[in-house]
């Protein structure tokens, strides 16, 4: 692939799969400015390794791996960023509890729950909510399929308990 073709391929990838970048960024940070920085960093990394893409594998797997690796490394560089996002999130929730519709409140509770998860659990939860099958999740994260099932089950249990707690 020459530089021109690579550039065109990159533009296509970004245009058609921007949702992956956005969803991962949203899962790791709720502050809009930080999300934008993170998406930009993901795009730079995708451009940097796009020549390594092997079309025998799913493009989404390739993109999820890069986006999640960048998001986790972004967190590691600055934990205060994560704290800031969580504080902001809590503020939004308080307002919504009073004012907004039930569905939005549930979505915010879900986002808060995700933001409180540990980094790799967070990746697992995002992929689960994206309705990825266990085999693809295992391939993206690099874990066994049975371990994916066990971990998702545990995280869901925790989430259900939190939803019930907040309802009561």
């Amino acid at each position: 692939m020459d530089n021109k073709e690579q550039r065109r391929f990159f533009e296509e990838v970004i245009e058609h799969h921007k949702g992956i970048l956005f969803k991962v960024a949203r899962g790791y940070c709720l502050n809009v400015e930080d999300q934008q920085d993170l998406i930009q960093e993901m795009m730079i990394q995708i451009w940097h390794v796009i020549h390594k893409y092997d079309d025998r594998y799913k493009l989404s797997t390739f993109l999820y791996r890069i986006s999640l690796n960048v998001a986790i490394s972004f967190y590691r560089k600055n934990s205060t960023r994560t704290k800031k996002c969580m504080e902001l999130n809590e503020q939004i929730i308080e307002t919504l509890v009073e004012d907004k519709l039930d569905i939005e409140r549930q979505l915010n509770l879900l986002e808060q729950f995700i933001s409180e998860l540990k980094e790799i659990d967070k990746a697992l939860m995002i992929l689960y909510l994206e309705d990825k099958n266990h085999t693809e999740i295992a391939e993206i994260l690099g874990m066994s399929v049975s371990n994916v099932g066990t971990k998702i089950g545990r995280i869901k249990e925790k989430l259900k308990r939190q939803f019930l707690q907040l309802k009561s």
Binding site: V49, G142, M143
Partner: peptide, 15 residues
């Protein structure tokens, strides 16, 4: 370090 490698493998190397 290969950022397009699986998450656990890449994060282990980076950590």
């Amino acid at each position: 370090v290969d950022i397009s490698d699986s998450v656990i493998k890449t994060q282990e190397k980076l950590s």
